[in-house]
Amino acid sequence: MPIFQSNDLKRAALGVAVLIAALLPQVASATLGQPEITVQTDVELAHASIKSSEDRTGYRVHEIQLPSGTVMREFVAPNGNVFAVAWQGPTRPDLRQALGQYFGAFASAPRSKLSDRRHVQIQQGDLVLQSGGHMRALSGRAYLQSAIPSGVSLGDLH
């Protein structure tokens, strides 16, 4: 029995390790579309602080003050998932972290002769990403269209 117990423990430990390994890449590198807990990951990785958390009708907003001076807002739906991320400040935040699996859409946005240093608007599947402003004052947002809680106006997501 002790041997079996040990094996069970090992198996259980392995199971946990596999689970953690499976979860870690997501937890460590995603916010948009992920559970609210990842907001805290963003805050810790960016050495930032949550300036305010506000419950609005139909959603909650965490306002994150980054050391760079940029403010990031993460919008959480009633189901506990982040459905939008917005930013404004002298530089963009770490969007690889904040956008997670959706980051690639910005990095590989389609370009043409019309694109040079013009603001960006991407609609790719469920994702909408917008980047605007100018040097020293950049702003933008990304959201998942299907995840926007009913009654929430796009104009509120900034």
Binding site: R96, A107, A109, D116
Partner: peptide, 28 residues
């Protein structure tokens, strides 16, 4: 990674940059 993580296109060639350089003459 902190640089590429800010997102968008890497504009490090004449083709992606759209110019041989840029002269920024804003009011600061």
């Amino acid at each position: 990674a902190e640089c590429s993580g800010t997102g968008g296109t890497e504009e490090d060639t004449v083709s992606t940059f759209g110019a041989n350089g840029i002269l920024g003459i804003g009011p600061f």
